[in-house]
């Protein structure tokens, strides 16, 4: 492909408006259609997004990092067998498989906070962002908190409820790969729940979204997560009832 625009392409005179938005405006045209160069750009972005769904959690790397910080860690699976089933059966992605339930049964500890690192729809987002975010969060936690970690695959957000219940956790934070967009194929979200129990719905959770290279930095994400932890433990609640506007909090920073 040549670097120059083809002379067959009719350019749009409002290219300067592109500075106001990342939307695909002023693409120009060939006949009524989008010029090939832009078609290929779009398909490239779509390929990134599609591939992101099939990336896998880097378990050896994550285990090593977390162990070096000195916390207990479990690696478990949902009831889902493969990616296709993951996409078709969100209900299975919210339940632990039998082996994993057995694994937890031997744990007698009670935890204040369980961090769950889950692949979701973009494992690479978690491989890239989770550790640097956690390294910002952990030093600021109350030293009396009993903290544990769980790595899990083919997981939906609500799998955190099953895990939290098994480990008798007061609070879970699920760090999970979000649905990939064309402009953000590797985006991580964090869902926090106070007093997790099976069958909770989304209004009981708080959410930090869009942690990726063009969105929130891990440092900003950590700031918000620390705030949610403090608030949830102070008020013993999470979700809409907390009435927190995270966007305002960020704007203030």
């Amino acid at each position: 492909m040549s670097g120059k625009d083809s002379s067959l392409v009719k350019k749009d005179a409002w290219d300067n408006l592109s500075s106001f938005t990342n939307a695909r405006i002023a693409l120009g045209s060939v006949g009524n259609s989008i010029p090939l160069k832009e078609v290929l750009q779009f398909k490239l972005a779509h390929a990134h997004a599609k591939d992101a769904i099939y990336t896998e959690l880097d378990i050896p790397f994550l285990e090593k990092e977390i162990q070096s910080l000195g916390f207990p860690i479990w690696t478990v699976k949902s009831k889902v067998q493969n990616r296709e089933e993951y996409l078709k059966r969100p209900d299975f992605g919210r339940l632990l498989n039998t082996t994993s339930e057995e694994l937890f049964r031997n744990s007698t500890n009670e935890f204040d906070i369980i961090f769950v690192l889950a692949d979701g729809l973009s494992a690479e987002a978690v491989n890239t962002n989770a550790i640097s975010l956690l390294k910002e969060v952990l030093p600021q936690l109350d030293s009396n908190y009993n903290v544990g970690f769980v790595l899990t695959t083919h997981a939906r957000v609500a799998l955190g409820d099953a895990i939290g219940t098994q480990l008798k956790a007061k609070f879970t934070a699920v760090l999970i790969g979000e649905r990939p967009g064309l402009s953000s194929p590797e985006s991580m979200g964090i869902y926090t729940t106070y007093a997790p129990t099976k069958g909770l719905t989304d209004e009981r959770r708080n959410c930090i979204s869009n942690i990726h290279k063009n969105g929130l930095t891990p440092k900003q994400g950590a700031l918000l997560l620390n705030y949610l932890i403090q608030q949830s433990f102070a008020k013993q609640i999470s979700g809409v009832a907390l009435k927190i506007n995270l966007k305002e909090l960020l704007d203030k920073e």
Partner: peptide
């Protein structure tokens, strides 16, 4: 009609202004 089929807020793909002309 969305610029280049890519809704940068809702993060999904729909039809574009060009598609409507087609």
């Amino acid at each position: 009609g969305v610029p280049g089929s890519d809704d940068v807020m809702l993060n999904y793909q729909t039809t574009s202004f060009h598609d409507a002309l087609y």
